[in-house]
Amino acid sequence: MNLPKIPLGSGIEWIENWLTTYFGTFFDIIHAIIGGMVNGIEAALLFLPALILIALITALAYWIGKWRMALFAVIGLLLIDNLGLWGPTMQSLALVLTASILAVLIGVPVGILCAQSNGVKNTVTPILDFMQTMPAFVYLLPAVSFFSLGVVPGVIASIIFAIPPTIRLTNLGIRQVSAELVEAADAFGSTPTQKLIKLQLPIAMPTIMAGINQTIMLSLSMVVISSMIGAQGVGALVYRAVSQAKTGAGFEAGIAIVIIAILLDRLTQNALKPKQR
């Protein structure tokens, strides 16, 4: 049998064109907001001399994770600076932080809606599955066509790739609050909002934090891919080193990413744990 090929590809392109034509202004606004955020965070990170920022981050690491984490922070960050990668690393960090903040700002409310309605959950879950199984490269393309090249489509792609754990674990955390506690809150006449704020979110918080932690890790894993569409930073250095087969430079940039990854992971994991007294 020889059926004509279904024009799926050209259909998608048509939709893409239609969106850029009619929602151009909308995309411009988004572009401005995200671009502004990345630039702002980057400027803030580079505002202080590297050594002072390293001292501040080390203090934070000590406050959250005592001397082991502080030691790791100071050695790791000094190494990055020593390799001459401080600037690009902060650029990539700005991208990761922007994508993570936006993913949390969108993901937590969506997760709450999922927890409160089975209908919403049953709609959102397959979309999340789709987003996570689709190779990240694929949604770089529409991101580029709506937002052109640069850091902004990188942030968008990172958000799409990284948001599912926050949504899933917010939903899960709230649904795991025991039925008896929810019943008690109801029995005293709580409104749904009071129940959410005073009972469900506080109890779900460790689970939600686990989701946020995963979201940050996933968006960090996107820095190299984002550099393919023009995002600057340490990710771009890795990408360039790979394409020019410069093993040494690639390794140095890779180490910087790993150090940032471990720091972000430990800091967010320990941030909400009850402090040992």
């Binding site: 019943e183 008690a184 029995a187 005293f188 005073k198």
Partner: peptide, 10 residues
């Protein structure tokens, strides 16, 4: 008001 079997304290 209500009091529960397994206490249901927050």
């Amino acid at each position: 008001g209500m009091v529960f079997q397994k206490f249901a304290l927050f």
